[in-house]
Simulated scan of single mutants.
Amino acid sequence: MNEAAIQLNNMSAEIESMLFRMILFKGITAIVLLAILVYVIYKLIEYYENKDIEIKFSYKEKNKIDEREEPKL
Rank of each mutant, 00 (worst) to 15 (best):
M1V: 10
M1D: 13
M1Y: 13
N2A: 15
E3L: 13
A4V: 07
A4L: 14
I6G: 01
L8T: 07
L8N: 08
L8G: 03
L8V: 06
L8W: 04
N9A: 10
N9L: 03
N10Y: 02
N10C: 00
N10D: 04
M11F: 07
M11N: 14
S12C: 00
S12F: 03
A13H: 01
A13E: 01
I15H: 06
E16C: 06
S17H: 08
L19I: 14
L19C: 12
L19V: 15
R21N: 13
R21A: 06
M22E: 14
M22V: 08
M22S: 15
I23M: 15
I23W: 15
F25T: 15
G27S: 11
G27N: 14
I28P: 04
I28S: 11
T29P: 04
T29V: 13
A30Y: 06
I31P: 01
I31C: 07
L34S: 09
L34A: 14
I36P: 00
L37H: 11
V38D: 05
V40R: 03
Y42R: 12
Y42A: 10
I45Q: 09
I45S: 07
Y48D: 02
Y48N: 01
E49G: 02
E49Q: 11
N50L: 04
K51M: 07
D52Q: 07
D52L: 11
E54Q: 08
K56Y: 11
S58R: 09
Y59W: 08
K60V: 06
K60R: 11
E61C: 01
K62V: 01
K62L: 05
N63W: 04
N63K: 12
N63E: 07
K64A: 01
I65Q: 07
D66W: 00
D66C: 00
E67V: 01
E67G: 01
E67Y: 05
E69P: 02
E70N: 13
E70Y: 10
E70D: 12
P71K: 12
P71N: 08
K72P: 02
L73Q: 09
